[in-house]
Design a protein around this nucleic acid. Structure first.
Lengths: 163, 163
DNA sequence: TCGCGCTGCTTGCAATTGCAAACGCGGTGA
DNA sequence: TCACCGCGTTTGCAATTGCAAGCAGCGCGA
């Protein structure tokens, strides 16, 4: 595949750098990359990795996201939901907790939608395709077990294999 | 030290993929990367470039930003734990759903904090510590009833974490 | 028992990243 | 004139990415 936007990201970086009135070497030092490499990036000769991109963004004191958008690495589309974005960005949650919260949230949305349409029906019509709707995986319940005191088996499996 | 969480991004991807119930090869095809490479990424043996990361996010139908955050590539200077704010502002939720979500979120935070303090301690089951404040009111379980039905057939416990 | 298809994993290897060192250019002071 | 300093750029080269091909294991129908 060609590199259609590599040039634009380079131009963008150079633009930002010049607006900040700092030299290539200064930015390179601030970003922790070598000056030759930064030079090549700015001229579109190299496609920097995400890591380098992030460091450059830091060195420029600009939003990483702006840079990623410029690089075409983040679709500019609005996030589907602020709730999900907030959950995903919350470092206070464990991976599993995050997923559980999102699952619950999404199922709430579905429930809400179903309530709207389901004026006369009362039984669950078994959604035609489950390819897209995640019906709360077992992790959901597993993670909730500690809270759901009424649960049958106290199989908690609260392993925090993190770190 | 540039990327201390290369492993976690792999785990995150694998987690998302398994929750989507698709095979490694399927995701690889959907993302347009080779399956061996994806395998190595998931196991933390490779640090994928931003481009690859973006394609994987697309293949997983998840937010690219979420992946970048997971990869530690977007350390947005604003890590606002505005989960609650987002929930409150979400017009798609009912009032009760909103309250349940917030309750779950807060109890997750508590659990997380408890885990932190407990990590250095010996295996100390903290089940007995639910006396100070019941984390989840009955609304919680009530709201979840319809979903909990999916696990009544006693399958579950299918952890299938990497072996 | 085969064979087929699927799962994920290992193995070389071409292409690329990213860097250290060196280059040419322009401005400044002695 | 020279030496010096900074600028951006060019030049090899080690390390890494990312892939094509192949391997081992599992489930299923003949």
């Amino acid at each position: 595949m060609a590199l259609p936007k590599v040039g634009s990201i380079g131009e963008y970086i150079r633009d930002q750098r010049q607006q900040a009135k700092i030299s290539l070497r200064q930015l390179a030092a601030a970003a922790g990359v070598s000056n030759p490499y930064l030079s090549q990036i700015e001229r579109g000769l190299r496609k920097p990795s995400a890591e380098i991109l992030n460091q450059i963004a830091k060195g420029l004191r600009i939003s990483s996201q702006a840079l990623y958008v410029q690089a075409g690495l983040i679709e500019d589309r609005e996030p589907p939901s602020d709730v999900i974005t907030a959950i995903r960005a919350d470092a206070n949650l464990s991976e599993r907790q995050r997923q559980v919260l999102i699952d619950i949230y999404e199922s709430f949305l579905k429930e809400r939608r179903a309530e709207d349409e389901q004026t006369s029906q009362n039984a669950h019509p078994r959604h035609d395709s489950d390819e897209d709707d995640a019906p709360l995986p077992e992790e959901f319940l597993a993670a909730l077990e500690p809270y759901a005191a009424t649960s049958r088996n106290g199989n908690v499996t609260q392993e925090t294999k993190e770190g």
